[in-house]
Amino acid sequence: MRRTLPIFVVLAVLLVAIAVANPYFLEPPAFLAFVKRAAPLVILAAGQYAVIVSGEFDLSVGSLVTAEVVIAARLIDGSAEATWPVVALLIVLGLLVGLVNGVVTTLLRVPSFITTLGMLLILSGAIFLWTGGAPRGALSEEFRELGRGSLGPVPWSVLILVVVAAAAAYAMRARFGHTLVAVGDNDRAAALSGVRVARVRTVAFMISGLAAAVAAILLGGFAGVSAQVGKGLEFQAITAVVLGGVALGGGRGSVVAAMAGAFTLEALFTLLNLYGISGALEPAVQGVIIIAAVALGAVRFPRRRVAATS
């Protein structure tokens, strides 16, 4: 647990710093608004965690989010009845993109960095082709309620986040989670112990795709339709996971810490905002964070072996 503790300390320090600058921050409405804003990234980080801990990357989630929002707007086109079928379709689409990423990576043995980079380009190209640069259609009020609205004082997105977080924490303690980490730690040993490595990794990509679909539904409601809605989210999610102390290369780190990493990133952006530092600086800050977090010892790429075996 020594790898996961630091992120909670950093998060607590940042929250206190925000509270110092803005005394209302820790009161329920403001804090819930913060959690609501962070929810899509936290969900994406949970999905990205599944892929990274199994020893792979998923760079396609940002453009998948954009694609999902753009498609939702076009298909719903303001109609209330279309909302729920389209939500279901978005979920299926997310799982499907994950399935393709997983199958190409595991069966065709294309490194996931390349597979998902290719998927990123394919999806963003397809969005551009389909929309001509300006998304058409509109989301229905019902759809936007998920990202904007609330049940009593608690935003829907916070409730959804709680469910996702609980499911993620549970899954990682169940047989599936242990198997996932085993694959990331040593896929040969796992395979020789009876683990279906290709299937487990493919499921990890599908989880990431599912997370992207859920994040897209929340973001569409929260931020509305644009062709930039998912831009850079893949790197934010990876930064969050790395910040949570999860080892690139797989096999180490906890999903709760990865989600805390996402909150930390969001808190940092909030703090920068409070001190009037330009949002344009965010990518630079993120770049520094990801390098620093990895340099601080998270990275453990699988070692290449020199000696030949008989």
Partner: peptide, 27 residues
């Protein structure tokens, strides 16, 4: 296996998780 580090063990995991690997993988 002949090479326990490369083919037998999850070096970063605990003894318990290694011991349960086959049981978990095969249900």
């Amino acid at each position: 296996t002949e090479d326990r580090k490369a083919e037998g063990l999850l070096l970063n995991q605990r003894v318990r998780d290694n011991a349960l690997l086959v049981a978990r993988a095969t249900g």
